[in-house]
Simulated assay, not measured.
Amino acid sequence: MRPADLAREHGISTQAIRNYERDGCLPAAERTPTGYRIYTGLHAAALRAFLALVPAFGRATAGAVMTAVHADRLDDALTELDRGHAQLLRDRETLATVREAVGHLTGGTAAGTGLPAPPGPRSVGEVAHRLGVTPATLRAWEAAGIITPDRDRTTGHRRYLPADVRDAELAHLLRRGGYLLDHIATVLRQIRAAGGTGEPAAALDGWQQRLTARGLAMLTASARLDDYLTLRSEPPRRA
Protein backbone atom coordinates (compact mmCIF):
# COMPACT_ATOMS: atom_id res chain seq x y z
CA MET A 1 0.00 0.00 0.00
CA ARG A 2 1.02 3.59 -0.64
CA PRO A 3 0.31 6.49 1.76
CA ALA A 4 -2.49 7.57 -0.60
CA ASP A 5 -4.14 4.15 -0.26
CA LEU A 6 -4.39 4.53 3.52
CA ALA A 7 -5.39 8.18 3.35
CA ARG A 8 -8.19 7.65 0.84
CA GLU A 9 -10.27 5.45 3.16
CA HIS A 10 -10.48 8.20 5.79
CA GLY A 11 -10.45 11.31 3.64
CA ILE A 12 -7.17 12.58 5.08
CA SER A 13 -3.93 13.72 3.49
CA THR A 14 -0.88 11.60 2.78
CA GLN A 15 1.08 14.02 4.93
CA ALA A 16 -1.16 13.10 7.85
CA ILE A 17 -0.25 9.44 7.32
CA ARG A 18 3.44 10.29 7.43
CA ASN A 19 2.90 12.44 10.53
CA TYR A 20 1.06 9.62 12.32
CA GLU A 21 3.93 7.26 11.55
CA ARG A 22 6.47 9.81 12.72
CA ASP A 23 4.57 10.27 16.00
CA GLY A 24 4.39 6.52 16.67
CA CYS A 25 0.64 6.22 16.06
CA LEU A 26 1.40 3.79 13.20
CA PRO A 27 4.10 1.13 13.16
CA ALA A 28 7.23 2.06 11.24
CA ALA A 29 6.95 1.35 7.52
CA GLU A 30 9.55 -0.50 5.53
CA ARG A 31 11.14 1.28 2.57
CA THR A 32 11.76 0.36 -1.02
CA PRO A 33 15.36 0.61 -2.31
CA THR A 34 14.42 4.05 -3.65
CA GLY A 35 13.09 5.22 -0.27
CA TYR A 36 9.34 4.95 -0.77
CA ARG A 37 7.31 3.80 2.23
CA ILE A 38 5.59 0.42 2.06
CA TYR A 39 2.39 0.12 4.06
CA THR A 40 0.46 -3.08 4.70
CA GLY A 41 -2.87 -4.25 6.07
CA LEU A 42 -1.30 -3.96 9.53
CA HIS A 43 -0.81 -0.23 9.00
CA ALA A 44 -4.38 0.09 7.75
CA ALA A 45 -5.68 -1.60 10.92
CA ALA A 46 -3.49 0.63 13.09
CA LEU A 47 -4.83 3.73 11.36
CA ARG A 48 -8.44 2.60 11.86
CA ALA A 49 -7.73 2.00 15.54
CA PHE A 50 -6.04 5.35 16.06
CA LEU A 51 -8.71 7.36 14.24
CA ALA A 52 -11.44 5.57 16.21
CA LEU A 53 -9.66 6.32 19.49
CA VAL A 54 -9.48 10.07 18.83
CA PRO A 55 -13.22 10.93 19.14
CA ALA A 56 -13.59 8.46 22.01
CA PHE A 57 -10.65 9.44 24.21
CA GLY A 58 -9.06 12.54 22.67
CA ARG A 59 -6.00 13.02 20.48
CA ALA A 60 -3.47 12.90 23.31
CA THR A 61 -4.79 9.65 24.80
CA ALA A 62 -5.18 8.06 21.36
CA GLY A 63 -1.54 8.83 20.61
CA ALA A 64 -0.40 7.57 24.01
CA VAL A 65 -2.29 4.29 23.53
CA MET A 66 -0.83 3.62 20.09
CA THR A 67 2.73 4.56 20.99
CA ALA A 68 2.51 2.32 24.07
CA VAL A 69 1.28 -0.57 21.91
CA HIS A 70 4.13 -0.07 19.46
CA ALA A 71 6.62 -0.04 22.35
CA ASP A 72 5.16 -3.36 23.59
CA ARG A 73 3.77 -1.68 26.72
CA LEU A 74 0.26 -3.09 26.51
CA ASP A 75 -0.55 -2.51 30.18
CA ASP A 76 0.31 1.17 29.77
CA ALA A 77 -2.03 1.36 26.78
CA LEU A 78 -4.84 -0.30 28.74
CA THR A 79 -4.25 2.05 31.67
CA GLU A 80 -4.77 5.02 29.36
CA LEU A 81 -8.09 3.52 28.26
CA ASP A 82 -9.07 2.85 31.86
CA ARG A 83 -8.55 6.52 32.69
CA GLY A 84 -10.84 7.53 29.85
CA HIS A 85 -13.59 5.17 31.01
CA ALA A 86 -13.18 6.39 34.58
CA GLN A 87 -13.55 10.01 33.43
CA LEU A 88 -16.71 9.15 31.52
CA LEU A 89 -18.16 7.51 34.63
CA ARG A 90 -17.28 10.56 36.73
CA ASP A 91 -18.97 12.79 34.17
CA ARG A 92 -22.11 10.64 34.24
CA GLU A 93 -22.23 10.73 38.03
CA THR A 94 -21.67 14.49 38.07
CA LEU A 95 -24.38 15.01 35.48
CA ALA A 96 -26.84 13.01 37.56
CA THR A 97 -26.02 15.16 40.57
CA VAL A 98 -26.39 18.35 38.53
CA ARG A 99 -29.79 17.24 37.23
CA GLU A 100 -30.90 16.71 40.81
CA ALA A 101 -29.54 20.13 41.79
CA VAL A 102 -31.29 21.86 38.91
CA GLY A 103 -34.48 20.02 39.82
CA HIS A 104 -34.27 21.34 43.38
CA LEU A 105 -33.53 24.87 42.25
CA THR A 106 -36.16 25.12 39.57
CA GLY A 107 -38.62 23.40 41.89
CA GLY A 108 -38.45 26.36 44.24
CA THR A 109 -36.24 24.99 47.04
CA ALA A 110 -33.47 27.02 48.59
CA ALA A 111 -30.22 27.57 46.72
CA GLY A 112 -27.37 25.32 47.62
CA THR A 113 -29.46 22.19 48.30
CA GLY A 114 -28.49 20.42 45.10
CA LEU A 115 -24.81 19.65 44.75
CA PRO A 116 -22.99 18.36 47.82
CA ALA A 117 -20.76 21.31 48.70
CA PRO A 118 -18.50 21.50 51.74
CA PRO A 119 -19.87 23.54 54.65
CA GLY A 120 -18.54 27.00 55.36
CA PRO A 121 -16.61 29.34 53.08
CA ARG A 122 -13.79 27.96 50.93
CA SER A 123 -10.83 29.70 49.32
CA VAL A 124 -10.28 29.94 45.59
CA GLY A 125 -7.44 27.42 45.90
CA GLU A 126 -9.63 24.89 47.70
CA VAL A 127 -12.38 25.14 45.12
CA ALA A 128 -9.86 24.92 42.28
CA HIS A 129 -8.42 21.75 43.81
CA ARG A 130 -11.91 20.29 44.22
CA LEU A 131 -12.65 20.78 40.51
CA GLY A 132 -9.20 19.98 39.17
CA VAL A 133 -8.78 23.43 37.57
CA THR A 134 -6.49 26.37 38.25
CA PRO A 135 -7.37 29.42 40.37
CA ALA A 136 -6.90 31.47 37.19
CA THR A 137 -9.73 29.49 35.58
CA LEU A 138 -12.06 30.33 38.46
CA ARG A 139 -11.13 34.01 38.21
CA ALA A 140 -11.91 33.91 34.47
CA TRP A 141 -15.31 32.39 35.25
CA GLU A 142 -15.90 35.15 37.78
CA ALA A 143 -15.00 37.81 35.21
CA ALA A 144 -17.54 36.22 32.83
CA GLY A 145 -20.26 36.43 35.49
CA ILE A 146 -20.47 32.66 35.91
CA ILE A 147 -19.60 32.62 39.61
CA THR A 148 -19.97 35.45 42.10
CA PRO A 149 -18.04 34.77 45.31
CA ASP A 150 -17.96 37.56 47.84
CA ARG A 151 -14.84 38.92 49.55
CA ASP A 152 -13.62 38.71 53.09
CA ARG A 153 -13.95 42.23 54.53
CA THR A 154 -10.67 41.97 56.38
CA THR A 155 -8.36 40.27 53.90
CA GLY A 156 -10.15 40.92 50.62
CA HIS A 157 -9.79 37.24 49.68
CA ARG A 158 -12.54 35.49 47.78
CA ARG A 159 -14.92 33.35 49.86
CA TYR A 160 -16.83 30.52 48.20
CA LEU A 161 -19.99 29.63 50.07
CA PRO A 162 -21.82 26.33 49.32
CA ALA A 163 -23.96 28.03 46.66
CA ASP A 164 -20.80 29.38 44.97
CA VAL A 165 -19.26 25.89 44.97
CA ARG A 166 -22.46 24.57 43.42
CA ASP A 167 -22.24 27.17 40.67
CA ALA A 168 -18.61 26.30 40.04
CA GLU A 169 -19.50 22.60 39.79
CA LEU A 170 -22.23 23.37 37.28
CA ALA A 171 -19.90 25.61 35.27
CA HIS A 172 -17.23 22.92 35.22
CA LEU A 173 -19.66 20.35 33.87
CA LEU A 174 -20.98 22.62 31.13
CA ARG A 175 -17.45 23.72 30.19
CA ARG A 176 -16.49 20.08 29.72
CA GLY A 177 -19.51 19.80 27.46
CA GLY A 178 -18.00 22.41 25.15
CA TYR A 179 -20.24 25.36 26.05
CA LEU A 180 -18.88 28.88 25.76
CA LEU A 181 -18.46 31.05 28.83
CA ASP A 182 -21.24 33.47 27.92
CA HIS A 183 -23.66 30.57 27.43
CA ILE A 184 -22.71 29.09 30.80
CA ALA A 185 -23.19 32.49 32.43
CA THR A 186 -26.73 32.62 31.03
CA VAL A 187 -27.49 29.13 32.37
CA LEU A 188 -26.11 29.94 35.80
CA ARG A 189 -28.06 33.19 36.02
CA GLN A 190 -31.25 31.28 35.28
CA ILE A 191 -30.45 28.62 37.84
CA ARG A 192 -29.58 31.18 40.52
CA ALA A 193 -32.84 32.94 39.86
CA ALA A 194 -34.72 29.60 39.82
CA GLY A 195 -36.39 30.90 36.69
CA GLY A 196 -37.39 29.11 33.47
CA THR A 197 -36.19 25.52 33.20
CA GLY A 198 -35.83 25.39 29.42
CA GLU A 199 -32.25 26.63 29.09
CA PRO A 200 -30.69 24.53 31.89
CA ALA A 201 -32.60 21.45 30.79
CA ALA A 202 -31.47 21.88 27.19
CA ALA A 203 -27.85 22.33 28.27
CA LEU A 204 -27.91 19.20 30.41
CA ASP A 205 -29.72 17.19 27.72
CA GLY A 206 -27.06 18.24 25.23
CA TRP A 207 -24.28 17.08 27.57
CA GLN A 208 -26.12 13.79 28.12
CA GLN A 209 -26.13 13.24 24.37
CA ARG A 210 -22.41 13.98 24.23
CA LEU A 211 -21.73 11.44 26.98
CA THR A 212 -23.77 8.82 25.13
CA ALA A 213 -21.91 9.57 21.89
CA ARG A 214 -18.57 9.28 23.68
CA GLY A 215 -19.57 5.96 25.25
CA LEU A 216 -20.56 4.57 21.86
CA ALA A 217 -17.32 5.90 20.36
CA MET A 218 -15.41 4.05 23.07
CA LEU A 219 -17.11 0.80 22.05
CA THR A 220 -16.14 1.35 18.42
CA ALA A 221 -12.58 2.28 19.38
CA SER A 222 -12.22 -0.83 21.53
CA ALA A 223 -13.35 -3.02 18.63
CA ARG A 224 -10.91 -1.36 16.20
CA LEU A 225 -8.05 -1.62 18.67
CA ASP A 226 -8.85 -5.28 19.32
CA ASP A 227 -8.78 -5.93 15.57
CA TYR A 228 -5.37 -4.30 15.36
CA LEU A 229 -3.93 -6.10 18.37
CA THR A 230 -5.16 -9.44 17.01
CA LEU A 231 -3.61 -8.77 13.61
CA ARG A 232 -0.41 -7.54 15.25
CA SER A 233 -0.10 -10.77 17.28
CA GLU A 234 -0.42 -13.04 14.24
CA PRO A 235 2.82 -14.51 12.89
CA PRO A 236 3.89 -12.97 9.57
CA ARG A 237 2.78 -14.86 6.52
CA ARG A 238 5.41 -16.42 4.32
CA ALA A 239 5.30 -15.77 0.62
Results as ranks from 00 to 15, higher is better:
P3R: 03
D5E: 03
L6K: 02
E9A: 15
S13T: 14
T14F: 01
A16V: 09
R18L: 02
R18E: 05
D23R: 15
D23V: 09
G24D: 00
L26D: 01
A28R: 12
E30C: 14
R31H: 09
T34Y: 07
G35I: 14
Y36Q: 07
Y36D: 03
R37W: 05
G41W: 04
L42D: 02
H43Y: 05
A44E: 04
A45T: 06
A49T: 02
L51K: 03
L53P: 04
V54G: 02
A56T: 06
A56H: 08
R59V: 12
R59Y: 09
A64I: 08
T67H: 00
A68E: 00
V69T: 08
D72L: 14
L74K: 11
L74I: 15
D76Y: 10
A77P: 01
A77M: 08
L78D: 06
T79S: 13
D82F: 12
Q87R: 14
L89N: 11
E93S: 12
E93Q: 12
L95E: 03
A96R: 09
T97G: 14
T97C: 14
R99L: 08
R99W: 15
V102R: 03
G103D: 06
T106C: 13
T106N: 05
T106W: 11
L115R: 13
G120A: 08
P121K: 13
S123C: 02
V124Y: 01
G125K: 02
V127L: 04
R130E: 12
V133L: 02
T134S: 06
T134I: 08
L138Q: 00
R139P: 05
W141I: 07
G145H: 05
G145C: 06
G145D: 01
T148A: 10
P149I: 12
D150I: 13
T154H: 13
G156K: 13
R158N: 05
R159H: 11
L161A: 12
A163F: 09
V165P: 00
V165C: 06
V165H: 00
A168M: 01
E169H: 14
A171R: 02
L173W: 01
L174G: 05
R175F: 09
G177V: 07
Y179D: 07
L180G: 13
L181P: 01
D182S: 13
A185I: 08
A193H: 11
A193G: 09
A193C: 11
G198V: 15
E199Y: 14
P200T: 09
A202K: 09
A202H: 14
A202F: 14
A203L: 06
D205F: 12
Q209L: 15
L211H: 00
L216I: 10
A217Q: 01
A217M: 08
A217C: 06
L219C: 09
T220D: 05
A223K: 11
L229Y: 06
L229P: 01
T230R: 10
L231K: 11
R232F: 10
E234H: 14
E234A: 11
P236N: 07
P236I: 07
P236D: 07
